[in-house]
């Protein structure tokens, strides 16, 4: 089986977010980049399945400039076999999805896996868009993922319960919490890092697709007034404030 997994290059979850150029650009100063947490979860699951005996070739795909290559190399060091980078700035989602659909068409992949959402632009749109470009079935935010022969067994949390699903290849899925049941972080060792340097990383140019969305300005949340401290021996005061001042009870 050949899997194509989308690897996002996103600011570390603990990053302090700032903007420059009159709040029109994300300030990348001092930002440490990581593989998107949901994509890392998905990759970990694929590697676990492979370790357990599923025959699998894992290719990563990233839409991004050369700056994303250390993140891609990290995915290779974790155990992916090779990588494709579409050499373009990742901004508009339809543009990104179109690029990934093209990469899929140009290889003989059986499945595309994305994270449930990126933690920077929080779109959560890629898997549906890619699937639609390719006219393939998809499941978003799968909370369980198994492969049994030519079948994919999935679970998805829905209103009031869990939905168990069955799909066949080719297929598109986005990984939510639970996708990898007991994720052991795969911290690349020295050998992994050395081998990753030699693994193929193919750079392709993007296909044309007009951007239909554009971010024109960023805002930080309004600073909150200082927390009102309440004496632990006077909890009635909290009840009064929640009722009279905050009006939430």
């Amino acid at each position: 089986m050949k899997a194509l997994i989308c690897i996002g290059h996103v600011p570390d979850t603990t990053s302090k977010i700032k903007f420059t150029d009159n709040d029109t650009k994300f300030d990348t100063t001092d930002i440490k980049y990581i593989i998107g947490p949901y994509e890392e979860l998905a990759l970990t699951r694929l590697l676990d399945l492979r370790d357990a005996g599923t025959d699998m070739h894992i290719t990563t795909v990233t839409v991004g400039t050369q700056e994303t290559e250390p993140t891609i190399r990290k995915a290779l060091a974790m155990g992916a076999d090779d990588a494709v980078r579409v050499n373009a700035e990742a901004s508009d989602n339809l543009f990104i999805a179109k690029q990934i659909a093209e990469v899929f068409k140009n290889g003989d992949y059986d499945i595309i896996i994305t994270g449930k959402e990126s933690i920077d632009y929080n779109g959560g749109q890629l898997e549906g868009m890619i699937a639609e470009f390719l006219n393939l079935p998809s499941v978003s935010g799968a909370s369980k993922f198994d492969i049994e022969g030519d079948k994919i067994l999935l679970e998805q949390e829905i209103e009031g319960g869990t939905l168990k699903l069955e799909a066949s290849f080719p297929f598109v899925v986005s990984a939510g919490k639970g996708f990898c049941p007991e994720p052991e972080p795969r911290i690349p060792n020295m050998r992994g890092i050395m081998t990753a340097r030699k693994k193929p990383l193919q750079v392709v140019e993007p296909v044309a697709k007009e951007a239909v969305t554009e971010i024109i300005k960023y805002h930080l949340p309004e600073p909150k007034p200082a927390c009102k401290m309440i004496d632990p021996d006077n909890v009635e005061e909290l009840v009064r404030l929640l009722h009279e001042e905050a009006k939430v009870i």
């Binding site: 977010i17 920077d120 969305t213 554009e214 971010i215 960023y218 949340p221």
Partner: peptide, 14 residues
């Protein structure tokens, strides 16, 4: 909402 709620963005849909 962007950056997981650490910021917001004005998006133009063209």
């Amino acid at each position: 909402r962007v950056f997981s709620g650490k910021a917001f963005a004005d998006v133009v849909i063209k």
